[in-house]
Amino acid sequence: MASGEPVQITVSMWSWEGLARLAFIAQQFGYEYADLQLSGDKFALFIVPDPSQQARERAAQNRARYPDASDGGSLPPVVPDAIDLLKARMVVDSGSQYTDKLRMGLLVFVLTTFAAAIGFRLRADTGAVVIVGIVWAALMSLLPVVLVISRRYRAKHTAQLLAAGFTPVTDRSGRLRYVPPGGQLPGHGNPFAGGA
């Protein structure tokens, strides 16, 4: 980040809270959250320089207050409300990356592969085939439940963003994103704007 260039952070072990904290700290040093996308079995977090005067002033103040931050020293205190909003943006952004139809197809593929792996471990006798068939059917019956829970989770976070004054906009790739009050899509012409 010291170079002032866009940054992509790829993580496999994650939590919404941890990713939101990471983006929040980046904001304290002159960056802004741009996007969160699922890439294979990992998440890619995109942060870009924030060219606003307020961001530059905040970054200069925090660099002076926390000179050892880049070496593992103390960091600016976390603001829980800001973390909650970043988390909501990340949930909505990652949820809008795929359509429900594509998400269903991916889940069918993953669960079928999982059931096949169980069958492989049990060997290919008749009993194993029956067990794998039952496990596969049980997993498939859970798909609608998973999709409903996912939609409700995204709807809850979308409502949180709207209540905070965020505006829905469609980015260049056709994804529905939410812009902070008085803001625009992150990146301001940067290569990570509107997704990478």
Score class of each variant (00 low, 15 high):
residue 1 M to D: 10
residue 7 V to D: 04
residue 9 I to P: 00
residue 9 I to T: 04
residue 11 V to D: 09
residue 12 S to V: 10
residue 16 W to R: 08
residue 16 W to P: 02
residue 26 A to K: 00
residue 28 Q to H: 04
residue 29 F to R: 03
residue 31 Y to A: 01
residue 32 E to G: 06
residue 34 A to Y: 04
residue 35 D to C: 04
residue 35 D to P: 01
residue 36 L to T: 09
residue 41 D to S: 14
residue 41 D to F: 07
residue 41 D to W: 07
residue 42 K to Q: 13
residue 42 K to V: 02
residue 49 P to A: 10
residue 51 P to H: 05
residue 53 Q to A: 14
residue 55 A to T: 08
residue 55 A to C: 10
residue 56 R to H: 14
residue 57 E to N: 12
residue 57 E to F: 04
residue 58 R to T: 15
residue 62 N to H: 15
residue 63 R to I: 01
residue 68 D to V: 01
residue 69 A to H: 12
residue 72 G to E: 07
residue 74 S to H: 03
residue 76 P to W: 00
residue 78 V to N: 01
residue 78 V to I: 15
residue 79 V to R: 03
residue 85 L to K: 02
residue 86 L to W: 04
residue 87 K to T: 14
residue 88 A to C: 10
residue 91 V to Y: 01
residue 92 V to Q: 09
residue 92 V to R: 06
residue 93 D to R: 11
residue 97 Q to Y: 13
residue 98 Y to P: 00
residue 98 Y to F: 13
residue 101 K to N: 07
residue 101 K to A: 15
residue 106 L to A: 08
residue 107 L to S: 10
residue 108 V to K: 11
residue 110 V to Y: 13
residue 111 L to Y: 08
residue 111 L to P: 00
residue 111 L to V: 03
residue 116 A to P: 00
residue 116 A to W: 10
residue 117 A to I: 04
residue 120 F to P: 00
residue 121 R to Q: 09
residue 127 G to N: 11
residue 130 V to P: 00
residue 138 A to M: 13
residue 139 L to I: 03
residue 142 L to W: 11
residue 143 L to C: 05
residue 145 V to E: 07
residue 147 L to S: 06
residue 148 V to N: 05
residue 150 S to D: 15
residue 150 S to Q: 14
residue 151 R to N: 12
residue 154 R to M: 10
residue 154 R to D: 03
residue 155 A to N: 10
residue 156 K to V: 09
residue 161 L to Q: 09
residue 162 L to N: 06
residue 163 A to H: 06
residue 166 F to P: 00
residue 167 T to K: 11
residue 173 S to R: 10
residue 174 G to Y: 01
residue 174 G to P: 03
residue 176 L to Q: 14
residue 178 Y to A: 03
residue 179 V to T: 11
residue 181 P to A: 08
residue 183 G to N: 10
residue 184 Q to H: 12
residue 185 L to W: 05
residue 186 P to S: 15
residue 187 G to H: 02
residue 187 G to Y: 02
residue 188 H to Q: 12
residue 194 G to I: 04
residue 196 A to M: 08
